[in-house]
Simulated assay, not measured.
Amino acid sequence: MALSYKARRRWSLVILLIGLPLYIVAAVTVVNMLDRPPIWLEFLVYVVLGIVWALPFRAIFRGVGKADPDAEN
C-alpha cells in the first residue's frame, strides 16, 4: 500500500524535524568515538553519513515539494 501525498508530506516533516537532529547527534557521537581522526577521514565519515541517512527515505521525499497531484484545479 503506497502512502498518499499528504501522508508522505507529514512523514517527511517528522523525519526532518525529529529524525534528522537525532541522526546528527548519532553521527557526531560516532566520530567522537574514533578519538578525533585526521581531518580528511572525519570529513569522509560526515559525507558518507550525510548521504546514508536519506537513502531509506527516498520514496517518502520524492515529489513532496510539488503540487498535490490529487487536488482539483
Rank of each mutant, 00 (worst) to 15 (best):
M1Y: 12
A2F: 07
S4E: 01
S4M: 02
K6Q: 13
K6M: 07
K6A: 14
A7M: 14
R8I: 01
R9K: 15
R10N: 13
R10T: 13
W11M: 15
W11D: 11
S12C: 08
S12R: 02
L13H: 14
V14K: 11
I15M: 08
I15Q: 02
L16G: 10
L16P: 02
L17E: 09
I18G: 07
I18C: 11
G19P: 00
L20W: 10
Y23C: 06
I24F: 08
V25M: 12
V25S: 10
A27S: 10
A27M: 06
V28I: 15
V28P: 01
T29W: 14
T29P: 03
T29M: 13
V30W: 08
V30Y: 12
N32A: 14
M33V: 13
M33Y: 14
M33H: 13
M33Q: 14
L34D: 05
L34H: 08
L34P: 00
D35P: 03
R36A: 15
P37Y: 02
P37D: 00
P37H: 07
P38M: 04
P38R: 08
I39H: 09
W40S: 11
L41F: 11
L41W: 08
L41K: 08
E42C: 08
E42T: 14
E42H: 07
E42P: 04
F43A: 15
F43G: 11
L44C: 06
V45Y: 09
V45R: 01
V45W: 10
Y46L: 12
V48Q: 09
V48D: 00
V48G: 09
V48L: 15
V48N: 06
L49V: 09
L49P: 01
L49K: 05
G50P: 06
G50Y: 07
I51K: 11
V52Q: 12
V52H: 09
V52E: 12
W53F: 15
W53G: 03
A54K: 09
A54T: 12
A54M: 14
A54E: 10
P56Q: 02
P56F: 05
F57E: 02
F57T: 00
F57Y: 13
I60P: 00
F61Y: 12
F61K: 02
R62E: 04
R62G: 02
G63T: 04
V64K: 04
V64Q: 01
G65M: 05
G65T: 03
G65E: 03
G65D: 08
K66A: 05
K66L: 02
A67Y: 06
P69M: 00
P69E: 03
P69A: 03
E72K: 14
N73M: 13
N73Y: 13
